[in-house]
């Protein structure tokens, strides 16, 4: 564990908490993509299957449980409790166009061809692109509430911090995982446009509104 890894995990945790607070406080999931949230639930479940096979550390187990539980709690709030506020007309991204290619890629490029390893790899590829329905929703409506912007910033920062963690680990421990590094770089790149808008608008107190 190094400072970049810890900061990344905390940023990830903060993102999830911000999202739950936004939905709970406003009693609404307007502006949030249910499609992205479904993809994140698929990511956590397919990646954390090793919860039942391997014990790594208490920290590792607890964080995995928090990510899985909170992701299902978010889905419950969106699709059951505050269903009436869900913006499904704008949330029209076809997630099968992400799920299928990621699965095929995981079958082709993986560290070893075993069910758990392929599912882990699938989750890494899927996580890289899971935010696309959310970014698509923001671009369709042309704006995002400030708390939604903070959520996206924390979620994007998490993988960017992991990239620093991987650079650190490569030099400090000789540890690297090309699949995670490649997917993490793509994941971070997808947020760049949003990061720019966040820094130039939201941090200056303005609403995140896309140029017409």
């Amino acid at each position: 564990m190094n400072i970049f890894r810890l900061a990344g995990d905390l940023s990830h945790l903060l993102a999830i908490i911000l999202l739950l607070i936004k939905i709970w406080k406003t009693r609404s999931c307007a502006g949030i993509s249910g499609k992205s949230q479904i993809l994140f639930a698929v990511v956590y479940v397919s990646r954390y299957l090793d919860l039942v096979t391997t014990f790594i550390s208490l920290y590792n187990t607890l964080m995995k449980l928090v990510f899985i539980t909170s992701s299902f709690a978010t889905l419950y709030l969106m699709y059951v409790k505050f269903k009436a506020t869900y913006d499904h007309n704008h949330d029209s991204f076809r997630i099968e166009f992400l799920l299928l290619p990621c699965f095929v890629l995981a079958l082709l490029i993986n560290a070893s061809f075993t069910p758990l390893e392929v599912l882990w790899t699938f989750s890494i590829y899927l996580e890289a692109v899971a935010i696309l329905p959310q970014l698509f929703l923001v671009s369709k409506t042309g704006e995002a509430e400030s708390i939604t912007s903070h959520y996206l910033f924390a979620l994007g920062s998490y993988r960017a911090l992991y990239l620093l963690n991987w650079i650190y680990r490569y030099y400090a421990e000789g540890h690297y995982d090309l699949i995670a590094i490649f997917a993490g770089a793509i994941q971070t790149i997808l947020y760049c446009d949003f990061f720019y808008l966040y820094i130039t608008k939201v941090l200056k107190g303005k609403k995140l509104q896309l140029p017409a």
């Binding site: 890894r5 993986n110 070893s112 758990l116 390893e117 882990w120 992991y162 540890h175 995982d177």
Partner: peptide, 10 residues
């Protein structure tokens, strides 16, 4: 490509 499971990262 790197190590196989188990992975110590989240």
């Amino acid at each position: 490509y790197g190590g196989s499971l188990p992975k110590d990262e989240l």
